[in-house]
Amino acid sequence: MKIVIIGATTGIGRSLAEFYAAKDHEIAITGRRTGLLEEIKTANTTSKIHIHEMDVSKTEASRAIMDELATLMDGIDLVIINAGVGFGKASYQQEIETVDVNARGFLALANWSYSYFVKKGGGQIVGVSSLASLTGSAYSPEYHATKAFMANYMAGLRMRSSKFKHQIVVTDIRPGFVDTPMTKQNKGMFWVATPEKAAKQIYEAIESKKKVAYITKRYILIAILLKILPEWIIEKFF
């Protein structure tokens, strides 16, 4: 299988890249820090790994890079969009950056992937949103809002694929707390998964072609609560 993993420098994306490389898939990995991507390529000598610098906030450049990768790999079967940012008590400029990466950047790449797979006759798009997509937050409203955008955009793509019989699988991955550089700033985390454990469960969800998967699986219990609890209770924790 030929796979593109967007946002593979650290955390979940890096663990997914290492997981798929170990299974001898041909993969392309992207991120802003190519030195970290080179580490993944150097550590794995059996799989074919392509690396490319990508800043997803530069939407037109990102879409052009996807064109390049599709040609280089002679086709793509699976696109995993993992790139994202989050800040604690963000400034206005950081809120705008969050929208540029998590919403605009995601849309540009998901749209490219869907159009590509329509022409190809099928494929799979995976977006890493978050448990945060289910609620607002007093501390990071911009982050939760962009993750909700991702989740709803993917739901729309699934509906489109079903309605027009495009044979495109769209999988929404919703992690809870995973031990990554971005979550180091969070206090009071619970049920924290390693990136390796998260990657294994994400792989299983992708293989099963799930519509939505909570990572780790126990977070589905929190998801149920978030859907039924009143806002005044949720605001104490989010």
Rank of each mutant, 00 (worst) to 15 (best):
T42P: 00
P230D: 14
Y114W: 02
Q124T: 12
M66N: 09
H144F: 14
I12K: 01
I81R: 02
H144D: 11
A28P: 01
V79F: 11
A108M: 07
K41T: 05
G88S: 14
K58T: 10
Q124G: 04
M66K: 08
I125W: 02
A205I: 12
S57R: 10
Y153Q: 13
V192E: 04
K211N: 11
R33G: 00
S208N: 14
M66Y: 07
G156A: 09
I81E: 06
A70C: 07
I222S: 04
I3F: 04
G122R: 04
K147V: 15
G122T: 12
N82K: 08
P195S: 13
Y20V: 10
K119P: 00
I224W: 13
K236E: 12
Y143C: 13
F106C: 07
F237P: 00
G75Q: 06
F237R: 12
Y153D: 03
K2C: 09
K147A: 10
G11W: 01
Y143S: 13
I234H: 03
T30F: 01
T146N: 06
V79G: 00
T34E: 14
K210V: 08
S133M: 08
E204S: 09
L221C: 03
I202W: 02
I51N: 05
K184L: 11
K210F: 05
E26N: 01
G86F: 05
D100K: 14
G105K: 02
I65G: 00
A148W: 06
H144W: 10
K2S: 15
Y92R: 13
L229E: 09
I228E: 08
S137E: 10
M1W: 03
N186T: 10
E68Q: 15
Y20F: 15
I202K: 02
F19I: 10
G176R: 04
K209L: 05
T46I: 08
K120H: 01
D55L: 10
E204V: 06
H166D: 15
I80M: 07
Y116V: 06
E95V: 11
Y203W: 12
A110L: 04
I215H: 02
A110V: 08
Q124C: 06
V56E: 03
V101I: 14
I6R: 05
G11S: 09
I96N: 02
V178Q: 06
V79S: 04
I3S: 02
T9D: 11
S133Q: 11
A70R: 07
D74C: 02
Y219D: 08
A148L: 13
I215F: 03
N102I: 12
A193E: 15
G123Y: 00
G11I: 10
A132V: 12
K197H: 12
A108P: 01
T42N: 08
L78W: 01
V79L: 13
Y153P: 03
V126P: 00
T146R: 05
I51G: 02
H25L: 06
G122L: 09
A145M: 14
H166K: 15
L225I: 15
I222P: 00
F106M: 09
G188V: 14
E26D: 03
Y203K: 13
H144G: 04
A22W: 00
A8L: 12
A43G: 11
T45D: 04
F117I: 07
P181E: 12
N44A: 04
V99W: 11
K217R: 10
Y92T: 15
I81V: 15
T42K: 11
S208G: 11
S129F: 02
M182F: 11
A8D: 10
I233D: 03
I224T: 13
P141S: 13
T46R: 07
